[in-house]
Design a binder for these strands. Structure first.
Lengths: 334, 334
DNA sequence: TTGTACGCGTTATCAA
DNA sequence: TTGATAACGCGTACAA
């Protein structure tokens, strides 16, 4: 069978490619019965031939790719590319008839100063979503700063062209919630290390502000440990004489081990120790709903896409940062 | 400045497009100093003009897209598209100079019998990775069965052209490990519901086989509950008089709540209750390493990509399923 | 409304 | 090696 291209459909129907093109793209206005009947036959033939428009050819002809690329770090833990975020991004893109290509960036490639991922070396998309990456290579930064491709920084605090959750508000909200529930001796804890993402300082700062505004003494701590001994380290921390009544944790990676540590010590949650955390979704790994300030990263993704499409339309124009507030989901741990 | 296309580079250098093309693609063999010097100037000009080859035009000219599409269900919990899997897929694709487009499939679209996602309605990639989707629409199945696009089913048990973890072996391995550690009264538990993925039956079956081979009585149970009350439901289950010494859990979504439930009851893990689970990665949400049969989904992804590339080369040829064994990672819960 | 002709940027062919 | 020229499949201005 002949290749399923517009030209072949046209020749088999004895019309021009332009006519087929018009019918398949739906720009046909004529409502006369004979015309409509012929349009139906053409559509039927196209379906029988398994015709699918070639997006690459379309991209070349239109001068735009109709897609967006996303770069994210390869290693887990760094740069949060959650399902919620990806759903938000893809959902919004679909509304604009665009699709997404994804590109992971291994740590070792970040080290090489001259390294450029293929998505930056070639032209394959109309814009770039750059999910937070610990330390971007100089070559990458240069490409982005020279505005070779419209870029929106995701989950990154920048002067412009970025979208990130309101981490300070999230820290504040979690703290306020615990204060309103009657807790007074409230600590803030981060177990382990994060490698310098701004949320680390912002959430802590939001916590501190809320405490001071309530006339309470803030107490923010970082418990040094790896991924395997979080529970043991937090248990030691809890065993200290000045155990708080409630804890705001940086994320569920601190909050959940903290809860397990509390249980191991025979403490009741929330009666002996209340826990609130900050996360993309309400953590349910423990089989119950932890009190959470849920960061609306799906919404962040949608807005980042809208911003990017705006930048594709008006390249070079700087857009104000989008800061997405979190929402409190009171759970079973406070 | 002129558009950064080969033609403009060529005219600015006073050579033909073919020459520029040859130099930039690295197929230049001539080692004469003058030639090399000119090549350097051309490369420099290309860089100065921010030249990036247009992948769409390349795709049209070459007749292949140089990319692969991945379809996954949109809703969490269904169809496991983990970071490990995506890393494996992208890593292997990069080795073949290909990239990935991703396409989520919302549940509501699965209901509509005639629905086709854009990635199937248009030609935009050389092959398809179809991550497990609860119930695929008839239209989608038809496109795939008519072999309009080379497809590999990921995490799906099919007669051919698929890659999935060896779930039966995983269930068996977890059980054998517990038996070797001296446990005898070992149960198998799944809390909640999964919607019919084959792993559900396979892991249970592997457990049952290992038990019978050891002369022990299998006891597989499903604890009905939602996502919020897993812990409470498992706690009730543990309070029954015939509490086992050890439990193989379907996944960490059962294993972790089970551990919390045990702790709430004052049970020690693993002395009073040992727990082993099956998962893409060792679950660390609890701050300790749970004993896990780790499914090597990154490897599965790599092999799925190799299989797909094979199918792109020889369309229509059926390839034997790839079944990837899991590995036991003894942790702190057994 | 319909068809012709050309452009999009690249790769590939074939003489020179 | 080099350069002219023709594909690739689709979109579109323009003329019929």
């Amino acid at each position: 069978m002949a290749d399923a291209i517009v030209e072949n459909i046209a020749s088999q129907m004895g019309v021009s490619a332009r006519t087929v093109q018009r019918i398949l793209s739906g720009e046909l206005k004529d409502k006369r019965p004979t015309i409509l009947e012929r349009a139906g036959r053409i559509r039927k033939l196209a379906a029988a031939m398994n015709y699918r428009p070639n997006m690459a050819a379309r991209a070349v002809a239109r001068g735009r790719f109709g897609c967006v690329s996303l770069i994210r770090p390869a290693s887990a833990g760094r740069g949060h590319y959650s399902r919620e975020l990806s759903n938000g991004i893809e959902e919004e893109l679909a509304l604009h008839d665009m699709y997404l290509t994804v590109h992971r960036l291994p740590d070792e490639q970040l080290q090489q100063p001259g390294f450029l991922p293929s998505v930056l070396r070639t032209a394959m998309s109309d814009g770039l979503l750059l999910n937070w990456v610990p330390a971007i290579s100089a070559a990458m930064r240069q490409v982005i700063e020279r505005e070779i491709i419209p870029t929106v920084w995701v989950n990154t605090k920048m002067p412009a062209d970025c979208a990130y959750p309101d981490d300070e508000q999230a820290g504040r909200l979690a703290t306020t919630h615990l204060i309103e529930r009657g807790y007074r001796r409230i600590a803030y804890v981060l177990a382990g290390d994060l490698g310098g993402h701004h949320s680390e300082a912002d959430r802590r700062q939001g916590y501190g502000a809320a405490m001071r505004e309530a006339g309470l003494a803030p107490r923010a701590e970082q418990v040094r440990c790896g991924t395997e001994d979080r529970c043991a380290a937090l248990r030691q921390w809890l065993e200290r004489s000045d155990r708080p009544e409630a804890v705001v944790t940086y994320s569920s990676a601190t909050g959940q081990p903290l809860m397990v540590a509390a249980l191991l010590l025979g403490l009741r949650v929330p009666q002996d120790l209340a826990i609130a955390t900050i996360e993309d979704r309400v953590p349910r790994d423990l089989g119950l709903a932890m009190t959470t300030v849920r960061l609306e990263v799906a919404e962040m993704g949608r807005q980042a896409v809208r911003m990017l499409i705006q930048k594709i339309k008006e390249p070079g124009k700087q857009l104000a940062p989008i800061i997405v507030p979190g929402v409190l989901e009171a759970g079973q741990t406070s």
